[in-house]
Design a protein around this nucleic acid. Structure first.
Lengths: 121, 121
DNA sequence: CCGGATCCTATCCGATACTG
DNA sequence: CAGTATCGGATAGGATCCGG
């Protein structure tokens, strides 16, 4: 079936629900965007992903690692260096993310004016 | 600019961030899917969106109404009837949602096996 | 430099009960 | 039928400190 089904995201165990949960969280999408041009170090990511705390960034990266979206590579150096890289799977996530971004840019104006209008009513 | 920018979703006030917040919540996406074939009544939605409580469904619908995604129409009848309908804006949300669903269906297997694999490591 | 440990708060969500 | 009111629990996320 090519289109969304009723039983789809309504069930916690369903594919779409799972992806939605990932995309829904505050940072996963930002990390994907930040890594799209190649590997980044932890601190680089911290700077790019404006305002994320180390704990949460670590949480996010670990979750993404578990799901096969990023790989984590530790270099036994002094000072220590850790690089995160998008897997092909992680890279492919950019397609739906881009779709969202496109919709957002195209329609944010309408949403904002709807919001304004509802304040007066 | 056609592609995602760094400053994009990193700022709470930015378009993508806003849309992500909507998509991230548990029910908005499900309501959009449930309404795609035409207007639905409150209780119909409650049934379709499996397990949502009236309070939360109302919250979701009100938020969507504010953002111009749905319209709410009250019929002065006995018994009372209220219909919710997707606006064109709300309809257009199905494009990115479909992109997510497609990605999910195509890649859920990989994510699941990555998860399995990480359990043994 | 990387990120774990701990504590805390905000928010979302669910259950239940009640009203026009 | 279509909600509202109230309460309570779960959890993501933030602040801060500390260790390898």
């Amino acid at each position: 079936m090519e289109t969304i089904e009723q039983g789809d995201a309504f069930d916690p165990n369903c594919p779409t629900r799972m992806v939605l949960d990932r995309i829904g969280d505050r940072w996963t999408v930002l990390v994907v965007i930040s890594l799209r041009n190649g590997p980044r170090r932890f601190t680089e990511l911290r700077r790019k992903v404006n305002g994320v705390t180390p704990k949460v960034l670590t949480q996010t990266l670990r979750a993404m690692e578990r799901d096969g979206l990023v790989t984590r590579e530790v270099f036994a150096e002094v000072p220590p260096r850790v690089e995160y890289t998008l897997t092909p799977l992680g890279m492919s996530l950019q397609t739906p993310i881009q779709a969202i971004a496109d919709w957002a840019e195209a329609n944010v104006g309408k949403v904002m004016s709807a919001r304004e209008a509802s304040l007066q009513a």
